[in-house]
Simulated assay, not measured.
Amino acid sequence: MCSTRFGTHAGGASPRRQAVVLDGPRTFRLVEHTPRQPGPGEAQVRVHAVGICGSDRELYLGHRAAPYVRYPITPGHEWSGTVIAVGEGASASLIGRKVVGEGLRNCETCAPCRDGETNLCTAGYEETGFTRPGAMAPTLALPARLLHTLPPDADLTAAALLEPAACAAAAVLKACPLPGSRVAVIGSGALGLLATQLLGAFSPSELMVVATSPDRADLSRRFGATAYRTWDHASGLTGFDLVIDAAGATSTARAATSMLRPGGRLVLAGTPVHGAEELDPAHVVARQLSIGTAFGASSGAWAYAVRAFSAARLTPLELLTHQLGIDEFERAMELAGADDPHVGRVLLHP
C-alpha cells in the first residue's frame, strides 16, 4: 500500500524549490529554498527522499526537550540523495555518488568517539534536522565525513529508510547473536522489523516477533520471523537466549526478562516511555541476565546497515506505505501520529 502523490503550490511554484521551516510547535511554513554551498570539508546533496519518525513528530508538536531542538529549523534526519558538490578538502570522488548520512555531528576526538561510540560524543549535542538544517529541502549541506556511499544501482527510495536500520543495527551489534539461538524481538514497528531482518542473517533456530497488532504478522514473517505472537497470546513464552525490546512500551522491558532463559541477554533499543515498569534487580541477578542498551547509531552501526543494504540482506522498502510531496508536510505529520497498523513509514520528496 504505497500512496504516491506530489502536490503543487499556489501560484505555480514547483515543490522541488520548497523547504519546510518549523518556526515553533505546530507552526510551519514552506519557503523558497536557497541552496547553501558546501564549506570546507562539506558536501552538498540533492535530496531524493526524507523519512518521518516519532522524533520528527515530537519536534512538530513541541514535545522535544529544549537542549535537543533549535527553532526555527528545517526538519529531516532520515534521508537519501546524491552528492552534487563538495567543498575544499572533501573528496571530489563523492560527486555523483548516491549517499545517506549520519545525523549526529560527532567530534571524532573525545574518548567515546575514539572508542567508536560516536553516538555518545561528549562535545555537545548537534544533529541534522533538530539543531542543524535538515533534509526537508531540495538540497542539504553537511560534513562529508558523515556520508556513507551506496552502490550506483541503489534504490534511493529504499535507502531513505537506512537511518532506522542503523539504529536496529546498533541493537543487533550490542546483542552479539549466535547461530542456533532462540531469539525474540518485541515490537513490529520499523526498528523491530529491521532488527528482525538483521538477526535472521545469524541463522537463529527461532526468531519470534511479539507485538500488539495481529495485522503485522505477515509483514513480520516477510522480514524473517519464524513465529509471531500478540501479547494476549504470549503467556508461556520463555527460554529465549536473546530478546531485543524495540518497542519501549510501559511493560515490555519487564516482560522481556521473563522471556529469557537463565543467563540470557536483553537489549533495550530506542527510547523507552517515561514511567515504564521497573526491572526487578533480584530477578535479574538471580537469573544472571545480561542487559545492554542501544540508543541511536554509531558510525560503525551505520556502516554495518549500509553494507547489509548494499548486499541486499536488508530490504526496508516494504516498510514504506506513503510517499508525499513536500507541500503535504502537515498530512505527513498526521499520518506519522496515526494509531493505524496499516500506516508504516512515510516519505516526503522535496
Rank of each mutant, 00 (worst) to 15 (best):
V273F: 05
G296R: 01
D280A: 12
H148A: 07
G76R: 00
P272A: 08
L335T: 03
A168W: 00
D155A: 07
P72E: 07
L104M: 12
G239H: 06
G62T: 07
G275T: 09
T315H: 11
A311H: 14
S299V: 11
R29K: 12
P35N: 08
L317I: 13
F295T: 14
R36I: 15
G263R: 03
P72A: 05
D327H: 08
R26M: 12
L279F: 06
R307H: 13
R64Y: 06
T238Q: 15
A135N: 03
A49W: 00
L266N: 02
R229H: 13
A43F: 02
L317Y: 12
I73D: 03
L347T: 00
A66H: 13
A303F: 03
T122C: 12
G239N: 06
D339Y: 10
T118Y: 01
S290M: 12
Q323F: 04
G275V: 10
S91D: 15
V209Q: 00
V31W: 02
V50F: 00
A312G: 15
C107V: 08
C107N: 07
G200V: 03
A154L: 08
G236S: 10
A49Y: 06
M1D: 12
V172N: 01
S290N: 13
M259F: 11
A13P: 06
V285I: 14
Q37W: 10
A282E: 12
P204L: 02
A144S: 11
P72Y: 06
R97Q: 15
G12I: 08
G337A: 11
L173H: 08
R105V: 15
R265P: 02
G189H: 00
L94H: 05
L150I: 08
T315R: 13
E88I: 11
S310Y: 06
P151Y: 08
A297Q: 05
A171G: 07
L319D: 03
T238K: 14
A276P: 05
R114L: 13
V83T: 05
A184R: 00
E328H: 15
G344A: 01
G248M: 05
V100A: 02
D23Y: 15
